[in-house]
C-alpha cells in the first residue's frame, strides 16, 4: 500500500474511542462498595490500546484497570485517572475544561523535566470521568484523552513497502521490540538504528532522543528512525476531490508535537508506525518554529454518538443483575 500512500499530503490523528469492559464495571463496583465507600474517588488506573489496524481507534478499559500489567509490542498500556462521582449533578458540575488544562500542564511538565524520555506514556494520559448507579446498573462515562491542538508536521515521503530494507521486516522489528520489553522498557516509542552488520537495533526512546540530538548538532541529515507502536492508515477520500490524508493513532500526537522541544533544531524525522505486517514508514517535516506548549489549545474529550462533546451511558442490567441473568439461563 506504500505506493498509494506516497501521494498523501495531510497527517491527522484518529481519536481514541473507549470500550469499557463488563469486567471493569464489576471490579469498580466491588472497589466502590467495599473500599472507597462514599468518597469521590480520584484513583490511578490504566487502560490500553491494541496495535491493530482494525482496532486502531479503540481504547480498552477492563478488569485489568487496577492490576499491574506490562505493555507488550501489541498491547500498549496507557496511564490514567478515575474520577468517580456519586451523583449525576456532581458529574455535571465538575469543571471539565479546568481538568483538561491540568492534564495539559502535566504533559508539559513531563516534557520540560524530560521524564517523558523514560516514560513516553506520560505524553498520552487519559481520564475516565464516571457516574455509576450501582443499584440500577446504569453507568455514565466520559473519557478525556488530552492533546495539544497543533498543526501536525507535514508528510514529506511515505516509503513504499517494496523499498523497505529487508532487515526492517515486521518480523525483525517484533523480535527487537520483544527484546526491548524483556529489558524492562515498556513503551510505545522506541528507536531504530541500522543496519549495522545487517542487523537493526531497537532501543529506548531516551536513547533515540540522545542520538537524534547528536545527529542534529553535527548537522547530519540521517537521524535514527523513531518507532511508534500505532497504526497509520489511509482512509478513502470522502469525495473524489477531497485531499488525501494519513490517519495516525492518537497516542502519537503529543509525542510528535513535543519532538522539536526535545530535539531543538529538528527539521525532519523518519517515523516507523509499527503495526506488525501493516506497518508504515514515513518522513515528516517540521516548520522552523518551536512550539510553546503553554499557549497551545487543548482538545481530547470524547464525542458521543451524536458527534457532540458529551458522555455515553450504558444500562448493564442484563450483564450484571443477578436476577435477570438467572432468568436468562436456558
Amino acid at each position: 500500500n506504500g505506493d498509494s500512500l506516497a501521494k498523501m499530503n495531510t497527517l491527522q490523528f484518529l481519536p481514541l474511542s473507549p470500550s469499557v469492559g463488563v469486567g471493569f464495571w464489576s471490579v469498580l463496583m466491588g472497589k466502590k462498595l467495599e473500599e472507597w465507600k462514599n468518597d469521590v474517588a480520584f484513583q490511578s488506573l490504566q487502560g490500553y490500546y491494541t496495535v491493530s489496524p482494525s482496532l486502531s481507534s479503540k481504547f480498552f478499559l477492563d478488569e485489568l484497570a487496577f492490576e499491574k500489567f506490562s505493555s507488550t509490542p501489541f498491547k500498549v498500556k496507557v496511564p490514567g485517572k478515575l474520577i468517580l462521582f456519586n451523583t449525576l449533578d456532581e458529574f455535571k458540575a465538575f469543571n471539565k475544561k479546568d481538568h483538561l488544562h491540568t492534564l495539559g500542564k502535566q504533559i508539559s511538565a513531563s516534557v520540560e523535566s524530560e521524564s517523558c524520555l523514560d516514560r513516553p506514556e506520560l505524553l498520552c494520559p487519559f481520564s475516565a470521568i464516571l457516574h455509576c448507579d450501582f443499584k440500577r446498573f446504569v453507568f455514565v462515562h466520559w473519557f478525556c484523552f488530552p492533546a495539544f491542538a497543533s498543526i501536525p508536521p507535514a508528510i514529506v515521503d511515505v516509503c513504499p513497502s517494496a523499498e523497505w530494507p529487508q532487515q526492517l521486516s515486521p518480523h525483525c522489528i517484533e523480535d527487537g521490540l520483544t527484546a526491548l520489553v524483556d529489558r524492562g522498557y515498556s513503551s510505545f516509542a522506541f528507536g531504530l538504528q541500522g543496519p549495522s552488520e545487517r542487523v537493526w537495533t531497537v532501543f529506548s526512546f531516551r536513547e533515540w532522543v540522545a542520538d537524534a540530538r547528536s545527529a542534529v548538532a553535527k548537522g547530519l541529515d540521517l537521524l535514527p528512525i523513531l518507532g511508534i507502536s500505532t497504526s497509520c492508515t489511509s482512509p478513502p477520500p470522502s469525495t473524489p476531490t477531497s485531499p488525501h490524508s494519513l490517519q495516525m493513532g492518537w497516542v502519537a500526537r503529543n509525542l510528535l508535537t513535543a519532538l522539536p522541544l526535545l530535539c531543538p533544531g529538528l527539521s525532519k524525522v523518519r517515523i516507523l508506525c509499527w503495526c506488525g505486517r501493516q506497518s508504515s514508514l514515513l518522513t515528516l517535516a517540521y516548520d522552523s518554529s518551536t512550539p510553546d506548549l503553554r499557549v497551545l489549545e487543548l482538545t481530547g474529550y470524547a464525542l458521543n454518538a451524536r458527534g457532540k462533546p458529551g458522555p455515553l451511558a450504558a444500562n448493564l442490567e442484563h450483564q450484571l443483575n443477578t436476577a435477570i441473568v438467572a432468568d436468562s439461563a436456558l
Binding site: Q12, K96, W142, A149
Partner: peptide, 14 residues
C-alpha cells in the same frame, strides 16, 4: 450532559 464549549476546532483531529 453535553458541553459544546469543549469542542475545539483542530486541524490535527480526524
Amino acid at each position: 450532559l453535553e458541553e459544546e464549549e469543549l469542542l475545539v476546532e483542530d486541524p490535527g483531529t480526524v
